[in-house]
């Protein structure tokens, strides 16, 4: 039975990966993922700085961009696009029934689709992290780069960013896949999650831990404090809590994803085809 399930999961992944990677409608996900690389490359080409202070600034800037733009916006919306499309997009295209008419358990369909979304998102977003890394740091002197990467913390920083990006895809991906299965209009849960994750800065310490972003921030190698705005009352509410150990954060995100995917799989058994209402 496992062999059959594996073959079926692979078949689903082959079908869905082609759709996710090469669909014209998914072009914006590539743009979103690679968007930070453009100014970084321009910075490398146009503003050639020398010296350790600029290098240090670039390290801080990368950490800030990763934490406040890449995780919160690029990967968040990218996962909305990729994972909600897996089920809800098929409903809109009126083609989900082809999966449901095959001799495949609904749970296997869901796992196959989740894995294909995961492979696509991890490839796109982790790939983009590498491109950004190269774009931002390539103009610095080779000796400085070598000492940062091989004798300093550079390599472990890069690995941490890659792990954080992959974990973001797992965490947000599972949540948005479930939203696509459970909700006719998954924009509603997406907007609620966006608001919740955006409000992370002002949430009480306990509630901060019920957001994906808190655990992702814990994996990031450099902690950047939440930025304060112009509103003085709101600024009083902004504070940071100590990050969790990276291993605990990864484990928690995996547990969250596992729980959400299992729940979505159970609910997928009850999916009915009703394209008229899409």
């Amino acid at each position: 039975m496992m062999t059959l399930w594996n073959r079926q999961i692979l078949a689903i992944m082959r079908i869905d990966l082609a759709k996710t990677f090469f669909a014209k409608r998914g072009l914006w996900i590539y743009l979103l993922a690679l968007s930070p690389a453009v100014p970084m490359l321009l910075h490398s080409l146009l503003d050639r700085h020398e010296g350790n202070s600029d290098f240090g600034q670039d390290v801080q800037i990368f950490a800030g961009i990763f934490q406040f733009f890449y995780l919160r916006i690029a990967i968040f919306f990218g996962c909305v696009g990729i994972f909600m499309n897996l089920f809800r997009g098929e409903m809109v295209d009126k083609s989900l029934h082809y999966y449901l008419l095959a001799p495949v358990r609904r749970e296997v369909i869901l796992v196959g689709k989740f894995l294909s979304g995961l492979v696509a998102s991890v490839t796109i977003f982790c790939g983009s992290v590498l491109v950004q890394w190269c774009s931002l740091f390539c103009h610095h002197p080779a000796s400085l780069l070598n000492s940062y990467m091989f004798t300093g913390p550079g390599a472990s920083h890069l690995v941490s960013y890659l792990v954080a990006a992959a974990c973001a895809c797992v965490g947000y991906g599972s949540v948005f896949l479930a939203a696509g299965v459970l909700f006719r209009n998954p924009l509603i849960p997406a907007a609620v999650i966006l608001l919740w994750e955006s409000a992370d800065g002002i949430l009480p310490a306990l509630l901060k831990k019920i957001s994906v972003i808190y655990w992702l921030k814990s994996i990031c190698p450099i902690s950047i404090p939440s930025p304060k705005g112009n509103n003085s009352i709101l600024n009083l509410l902004i504070f940071d809590v100590d990050p969790a150990p990276a291993r605990v954060a990864i484990l928690n995100l995996m547990l969250l994803a596992g729980f959400v995917v299992v729940w979505a799989a159970i609910r997928a058994r009850r999916i009915e085809i009703g394209y008229g209402s899409e």
Binding site: S35, P36, P39, I61, I65, F68, F69, R72, I73, A74
Partner: peptide
Amino acid sequence: GFGAVINGV
């Protein structure tokens, strides 16, 4: 976000 990236970088 992208505006902030440009401003920062």
